[in-house]
Write a protein that binds this DNA or RNA. Structure first.
Lengths: 242, 242
DNA sequence: CGTAGTTACGTACGCCGTACGCAGTGCGAT
DNA sequence: ATCGCACTGCGTACGGCGTACGTAACTACG
């Protein structure tokens, strides 16, 4: 029988080898790296079992000896790039600075792998690198004297914000992939529709905003830094109203 | 020829009828409603052109007379449920209260349609109901004396936070759909792996947190309310550090 | 040394989105 | 009044997908 029975299990608990049988031609890591390479180059939708197998030069079904289901491949991919976080030996003692650095690193990783933000929500679990990351964050927050639950909220919020921000920025670019026309055309058409609607007069506030906006060109980096700063602020001070 | 040529265009700008030819048996709305019905019942992945057509009792390709591409169907679905926001005639004058209400409404909608949070990032544009929503938010924020760009940030952050929160809550449930085993088994297996890892002693902070956590059972509603309150706070006060 | 468990992988099934073509319909122009 | 054409409905088909299953080769363990 090929592979193993489809039983409830986590990919991380499944041993890669059991010792018996011929030496595997590849490692789980080889397959994940190939998948990441494809996703980086052609988007996450280009990652199919057939395509990954082709990239490695093996038969499609051979992959199922290493990865039980495609969804597990996604989880492995997320874990792999989560390993790109560079976490120092010890937290600095300034939790605000540490968390800010983490947020910026996370954003950088998501720019390096434009598919990450989109699949993180669905393919995220307690993978080894996720645990390593979580442990690090908790270490950074040790000096902060709040309930443990609140620390988890903080971490989740910072991560979620990074993800939402980047996902939003990348939405149009990712959507344009595989469309029968170019990203520029897509953006032009959408912009034109927006203008036509606003010109209709039914959206006075929005019109006012658009009239004012061009004066202040957006700096994505600065906005991001500010957003994270605000977020951390909100955990630094007591809530005014519940 | 069936349908129209695949040219760059926004679904919202495409007229539903042109007058010539036989009366259509359905409306665009009929199709979107069927799709929403299917997604509510069986998840977004169950929404296929064939399935929607079957739900309506027509041929698959007939749908392409109403919707040029499947991705447009997603956009129509997001717009349709965005219409569920109940926006009063006039803002109350208290922008904090108004935005809080909006956030809670958004969360309720995402619970009603558990597929929404997942596809919102990819299938969100300036749809009619999105414009209506945005205009309303800007109206609520009129009393707030900050640059227009910051108001947009605030709206984006509130929306993004609602989305990220709900998406995170629903991740396991949505992931379990279509798996060869049950959601409970999935959660049990993942929990067991987490425990085994933490028991290994490599994650002291995490272990400490898990030891403390059961004492304080989480109240999702309360946490959400607090998160939004914190977020709004952060826009109410100047940033301490940039 | 047999044999059980593994690896590699070809074939096949049932899905998917959608291009294309044809028949029938009814409005607009003549 | 009638002709033409834009439109509707929809069957067929193509190229993709994930993956169940079967077969053959191989190797570590009892």
């Amino acid at each position: 029988m090929a592979g193993r029975a489809a039983v409830p299990e986590v990919i991380w608990a499944r041993p890669e080898r059991t010792g018996r049988g011929p030496k595997p031609a590849y490692s789980r890591r080889d397959i994940v790296d190939a998948a990441v390479r494809i996703a980086d180059a052609d988007g996450i939708d280009a990652v199919s079992m057939r395509r990954v197998a082709a990239e490695l030069g093996c038969g499609t079904m051979s992959l199922y000896n290493y990865v039980p289901r495609k969804e597990d491949l996604y989880e492995l991919m997320v874990d792999a790039v989560s390993g790109e976080y560079e976490l120092p030996e010890e937290p600095s003692g300034d939790w605000r600075a540490d968390m800010t650095a983490i947020a910026h690193q996370g954003r950088a990783i998501m720019y390096r792998h434009p598919w990450l933000a989109r699949i993180m929500t669905t393919a995220y679990g307690f993978s080894p690198n996720a645990l390593r990351f979580l442990e690090w964050c908790l270490g950074c927050l040790a000096p902060l004297d709040v309930p443990a639950g609140l620390k988890m909220q903080l971490i989740a919020m910072v991560n979620g914000t990074v993800m939402a921000t980047v996902a939003n920025e990348q939405a149009i670019a990712e959507r344009a992939r595989g469309l029968p026309w170019s990203e520029a055309e897509e953006q032009a058409v959408r912009g034109a529709y927006l203008m036509s609607q606003v010109a209709g007069g039914r959206y006075p506030h929005l019109a006012g905003l658009l009239a004012e906006a061009p004066a202040a060109p957006v700096d994505a980096d600065e906005i991001f830094a500010m957003t994270i700063a605000r977020l951390l602020d909100s955990f630094d001070t007591p809530v005014t109203r519940a």
